[in-house]
């Protein structure tokens, strides 16, 4: 049930993956924010004025993914978002609480539902096909991928948009800070100072990343997702056992590269070490959350990183230092774990 990635679009804190963004550009205190494109390249001005930031981020990423695949129709849209449309949710809630239950306008309510992003992408592309939205914490994107994989298995020729989208707002940053999600010390150095501080907490992040995928390979395929699995309420060792099963099921004995979701929180990162040790990986390891920050669908950023590394060269023979297989392992605090196994095309 391989899923071939034909196009990638992303609005996140690290638009050019080859070179990490300047810390001053993407980071404000313990927050990494998406570096936004000129939305008029993707959405006409009139429609854009009505849209919230997360919807614009989502549509821009989706349109980029379609263009990256060489264009063409889209048969379905599947999205994952852990936090949903926070800006509009907070706007309506604030008016409700401050004004009382009178004098409210419907606009922010209308756009507050979690499915607004996938719905607006479908509306923008006039896509009447399959449409679904998952909101399940840090496996929202993986759930969407599992759904897309099923769709591709059912009808391999379908061209599907699958993405992960989360926005950070001042309100969510404040509330998550009070919940001690983020580091208390302020950063000042390079982005990778996120790691190895031996302190609790992480940096906040956000991003919208869409993939144009199908069950068929073809000339535009840049990488293939061999498997995606979620592991709920289990130990790192259980996830490592699932990872070994995935390799075996795909006739692999090792992967060239492991991408892991360390976020600088000492407990979270210790659990990732337990996974890596038990899995027994001896090759290189890449981390990614210093580039995008922590958010429920950060794994979509990791998939982008993995797919772009696999597609990194068109020269043959393939240089030895460019990986052919990648395993992505993500987790966040005590929530769920996920695995994505990727192979070059």
């Amino acid at each position: 049930m391989a899923l071939f990635i034909h196009g990638i679009g992303s609005v996140d804190p690290a638009p050019a993956l080859g070179h990490a963004p300047e810390p001053a550009e993407a980071r404000a205190g313990n927050r990494l924010h998406a570096i936004e494109p000129n939305y008029l390249d993707f959405i006409d001005a009139r429609a854009s004025r009505r849209m919230s930031r997360i919807v614009k981020m989502g549509i821009a990423a989706a349109v980029q993914a379609v263009r990256g695949s060489g264009g063409g129709p889209v048969d379905g849209v599947v999205a994952g978002t852990g936090w949903g449309c926070l800006e509009d949710t907070v706007a309506f809630l604030q008016k409700l609480v401050v004004n009382g239950e009178d004098m409210l306008s419907p606009t922010s309510f209308i756009y507050s539902t979690h499915n607004t992003i996938a719905a607006q992408v479908a509306y923008h592309l006039k896509c009447r096909g399959y449409n679904n939205t998952f909101s399940h914490r840090n496996i929202s994107f993986e759930s969407a991928l599992i759904d897309a994989q099923l769709l591709a298995h059912e009808q391999p020729a379908q061209r599907l948009l699958v993405g992960g989208i989360d926005e950070l707002t001042d309100t969510s940053f404040t509330v998550l800070s009070r919940l001690k999600t983020f580091k208390s010390q302020q950063p000042g150095g390079p982005l990778d100072e996120l790691y190895d501080q031996g302190t609790p907490g992480t940096w906040a992040g956000e991003g919208a990343t869409f993939f144009l995928v199908s069950g068929e390979a073809g000339p535009t395929a840049r990488a293939q997702l061999l498997a995606v699995r979620t592991v709920s309420f289990g130990t790192p060792e259980k996830a490592a056992a699932v990872a070994r099963q995935l390799l075996t099921a795909n006739q692999l004995t090792w992967v060239d590269l492991l991408i892991t979701g360390e976020n600088g929180d000492q407990e979270n990162d210790a659990a990732i070490q337990r996974f890596a040790t038990d899995f027994g990986h001896s090759g290189p390891v890449h981390k990614f959350k210093h580039l995008c920050g922590e958010y429920p669908t950060a794994s979509a950023f990791a998939l982008r990183l993995g797919a772009e590394l696999l597609a990194g060269t068109e020269s043959t023979p393939r240089p030895a230092d460019i990986p052919r297989t990648i395993l992505i392992y993500n987790r966040f605090q005590q929530q769920h774990q996920s695995l994505m196994l990727l192979q070059a095309c």
């Binding site: 949903g84 539902t113 979690h114 499915n115 996938a118 449409n131 679904n132 939205t133 998952f134 909101s135 399940h136 496996i139 759930s143 599992i146 979620t230 709920s232 309420f233 289990g234 769920h336």
Partner: peptide, 16 residues
């Protein structure tokens, strides 16, 4: 899911 002891696959859909 935890109360019911279900853990092989757990997710949430939100399409209004």
């Amino acid at each position: 899911a935890e109360k019911l002891g279900i853990h092989d696959f757990v997710t949430t859909i939100s399409t209004a």
